[in-house]
Design a protein around this nucleic acid. Structure first.
Lengths: 186, 186
DNA sequence: GACGGTTGTGATAGATCAATCAATAATGGC
DNA sequence: GCCATTATTGATTGATCTATCACAACCGTC
């Protein structure tokens, strides 16, 4: 039982808050590409530049980490939409402005894929409840920001879902017509 | 090393084709609720009433089983749509008829959830390619059956996606306005 | 009533992975 | 310059899961 190698020399220590940040960012990527189950804490740790056990000093469990990732992703989407809706004149205009930010959100790619993975993992009741609340918050805020009707909200959300899926499948052309022809008619 | 218990008595044997059928049906349920990674071959076998190793006599690998499930699900959706589109008068009418079958597909529940799980598992390139082909076939057939425009197709697919997600989250009320107010205006 | 193909299973290898724990190095206050 | 606190890791455990293999029970058939 040889004990540990004595850690070559001074490695700079970061605050726990800092590390949590790194882990969250790494986890977003891993969860987005592999899903809740397939993503391993070892891979997340590697990407974050820390050891695998240390994740459990920063988050109580893999599920908690996943839900924290989901919260952050929802928050990021919301802030993007809030910004986009600034100065809109009417509901359609607000939704249109939000819709144009979708490609930007997709540019991040991982944000939307994380959403999809959260839905897929919703077989677990605890996850479903959490993700359901996030989805409700999203829907509520979009309505509040835009003042749209339930039907318009549904159509907007639906477009987002299609964007998710066509992105992950690498078939964006199927989604494009939505944002082109919906409001932007010359 | 006690050898096996001598198998109480005569259990009726089924044809391999029969068994494959049972396994596929069981796998649809397991994959739908848990996803590709989290669903275990042991649980599938238990549900199908066979031993876990026998699955590998019927399907070469878990991934092959998953893709076979996906094919079957796509085929089921297509046949539902084909039936619904019979006797439609124009593209809008055809899409409307197909849309009304969505709740029926959701009644099955597992069919649509399997689709969602397939998208979520598309991080794996082999799965993505297969699922992408299925999605393309779906989109192509819908266009052929209805004669709709690309924008109408996109809106229709988007609605399906939203139906998937609101179903799994148990929030169907967010999706209802789509099918109610879209075409059925009195 | 032996035989060859088919159906089916138990045991198990081999891999992976979440989570725990004890131990150790750096840090900051005093 | 000491001490309590905080950050960080190596080693490991126990569980789980896919896949393989050798073997057994059944079936038609000659």
């Amino acid at each position: 039982m040889a004990l540990m190698t004595p850690a070559p020399s001074t490695l700079p220590r970061r605050s726990a808050e800092d590390r949590r940040e790194q882990v969250l960012e790494a986890a977003i990527h891993e969860f987005a590409e592999l899903g809740y189950q397939a993503a391993s804490t070892a891979a997340i740790a590697r990407r974050a530049g820390i050891s695998q056990p240390y994740i459990y000093a920063l988050f109580p469990s893999k599920q908690d980490l996943f839900l924290a990732v989901h919260d952050r992703v929802v928050e990021r989407i919301l802030s993007t939409f809030r910004e986009a809706a600034q100065g809109a004149t009417d509901p359609q205009d607000a939704l249109h402005r939000m819709g144009t930010t979708y490609p930007e959100l997709i540019g991040d790619r991982f944000v939307l894929l994380c959403q999809l993975q959260a839905y897929a993992a919703a077989g677990d009741p605890e996850i479903r409840e959490h993700v359901g609340r996030g989805f409700g918050r999203l829907a509520g805020e979009i309505r509040a920001l835009s003042g749209c009707t339930p039907a318009e909200l549904a159509a907007f959300l639906a477009g987002g879902m299609l964007a998710n899926v066509t992105t992950i499948l690498g078939m964006p052309e199927l989604c494009d017509p939505l944002w082109e022809e919906k409001h932007g008619r010359a």
